[in-house]
Write a protein that binds this DNA or RNA. Structure first.
Lengths: 112, 112
DNA sequence: CTGGATCCCTATCGATACTG
DNA sequence: CAGTATCGATAGGGATCCAG
């Protein structure tokens, strides 16, 4: 959980949580994919290269639980499901923008 | 690696790499600890609550390899080692600032 | 003090197959 | 279409002991 509470305590615990929200594999990719218009489950898995159905379902549940996306079920036949980014999720994406800038300023060195 | 190249390709690959740099457990905590003045190995492990020696050494190597910190060996007896944040590392911390703001705006929901 | 080397354990991942 | 179930492989983490 990365608390390092001897240093800043409160602010840092929140930060660690935030990082872990989108730090998990695929999470940020999925969130961005939805933000860019991939609303359907199959669209999402297709948009995010390498993402399997299993992980997609898992991450979508997590993102929904974290209130970053919303799941909307449309009772047609067969049933349709749409995913949309919440305001909270959009704000997160926005706050991630500087990080994108950082990645562009410095070329990714070795990428872990 | 989270490529989602059907969406934005270049920018997003960089972003995924950036996230993974500090997304690993303890990484951001260690980086911040050093930035806040914990230069010695023992100071770092003490500052980041729960961090073990093994993981500290591992993460420090990674952070050094990613050019976010610099390792300085001072040949005394016994040998001293200092860790300092590089410009690149400082810029990364700065670019993470909005994310901290996001975490404060919305209280952390469930924190994975 | 600053780590390196092991051991073991658990979480997580990817692939495959299956359901409503 | 939108997932769920199961399984084997693997990587990451914690603890402990050891070394320069």
């Amino acid at each position: 959980m990365t608390t390092w509470q001897h240093i800043d305590d409160d602010q840092c615990r929140r930060f660690a949580s935030s990082v872990e929200l989108i730090g998990k594999r695929w999470s940020s990719g999925i969130l961005l994919a939805i933000a860019q218009g991939a609303t359907r489950f199959s669209e999402i898995t297709a948009s995010v290269t390498g993402l399997s159905d299993r992980l997609a379902a898992q991450r979508l549940k997590e993102l929904e639980r974290d209130l970053l996306i919303e799941r909307q079920v449309i009772p047609t036949t067969p049933v349709q499901v749409r995913y949309v980014v919440t305001q909270r999720g959009q704000d997160l994406l926005d706050s991630l923008q500087p990080l994108v800038g950082w990645g562009q300023k410095y070329g990714t060195p070795a990428a872990n």
